[in-house]
């Protein structure tokens, strides 16, 4: 190799060395960032752990059959959460029967049928996104003005459940749209190319393929609604209900009962509140776990 060639090679080598060094600097930055991410995670986990341990310590001694069979009582020895548990289940049923079909229907329409670039459709989409950011107490005020007083439903379980459903709509609509969008267009084209109508393709192919995602979003939306308190206080969920609630009776739900018990002076009620929190947590974790299981079980590779 001649001198010029050697110089050229050295230059090239230098350039490579520099570029490799540059990568090392970046990897230091990456390490710092990774550390920060780990720290954030640990902070979150510790907070959650402390909360869980405290709740379990306080609540486990009170977590007995009476909690599920008895009604609330001024006597902490006999107090239970049965009406609140029943009401929470009823709320979930109403959500499944009302908000869920409306949300999925909206998502299917917007994603599969709505004309693209239509002003009205754009406005609706914008509104749905904004609705997701509305504070829950505002939904409570709407429920109070429109359902409880406007339609004169009164402070009944149905009114509360409907307002929770309204609050849940944007979450489920957005999640369902994501799920529908994840179904590749090739599936729709394949169906249409066989002479199927758009409706047949949506009903037989796209929707079934999107069901896991829709279900995941729906369950997450529902579990948030089940844990919600503020809008229900607004629409008059009673704090003391000693009978089994129906759709058109007064009611209280678990989060409100917990709130009520914690305010009471007797020490035992604090324990009962902690026990009720455990029940609520188990329900929510079970719902979320089911959503995760469902997502993994039906996850598809396209």
């Amino acid at each position: 190799m001649n001198a010029a060639g050697r110089i050229a090679q050295d230059r090239a080598g230098l350039a490579v060395r520099e570029s490799l060094a540059g990568r090392r600097n970046r990897s230091v930055a990456a390490g710092v960032f990774l550390g920060y991410l780990l720290l954030s995670t640990v902070v979150g986990l510790i907070a959650l752990g402390v909360l869980l341990v405290t709740i379990l310590q306080d609540g486990l001694p009170y977590l007995d059959a009476m909690l599920f069979t008895n009604s609330p009582s001024a006597n902490p020895e006999r107090a239970g959460a049965r009406p609140a548990i029943i009401a929470s289940i009823l709320v979930a049923v109403v959500l499944i029967a009302t908000a869920l079909p409306i949300a999925v229907g909206t998502a299917v329409y917007l994603e599969e049928f709505a004309p693209k670039g239509n002003r009205l459709i754009d406005l609706i989409e914008l509104n749905i996104q904004n609705l997701a950011a509305v504070p829950s107490i505002i939904f409570g005020i709407l429920g109070l003005a429109f359902l409880v007083r406007g339609l004169d439903l009164g402070p009944v379980l149905l009114a509360g459940a409907l307002i929770l459903g309204l609050q849940m709509l944007p979450t489920v609509i957005i999640a369902s749209r994501e799920a529908l969008r994840a179904v590749p267009d090739s599936v729709r084209q394949g169906g249409m190319a066989l002479g199927a109508t758009r409706w047949q393709v949506v009903w037989r192919e796209v929707l079934p393929a999107a069901i896991p995602g829709i279900a995941t979003g729906s369950i997450l939306g529902m579990s948030r609604a089940i844990g919600e308190t503020a809008p229900l206080l607004m629409v008059g969920a009673a704090t003391f209900v000693s009978f089994n609630p129906g759709l058109l009776t007064q009611y209280t739900v678990l989060p409100i009962l917990i709130y009520q018990w914690i305010k009471l002076p007797q020490e035992m009620f604090q324990g009962l509140a902690a026990a009720a929190i455990i029940v609520l947590l188990v329900i929510l974790v079970a719902m979320n776990g089911f959503a995760i299981w469902m997502r993994n079980r039906y996850e598809r590779k396209w």
Partner: peptide, 15 residues
């Protein structure tokens, strides 16, 4: 489209 079928670039079986 019933009479004139189509096969696409990327295989697109239904899931």
């Amino acid at each position: 489209r019933k009479r004139i079928g189509m096969v696409f670039q990327k295989p697109n079986p239904f899931p």
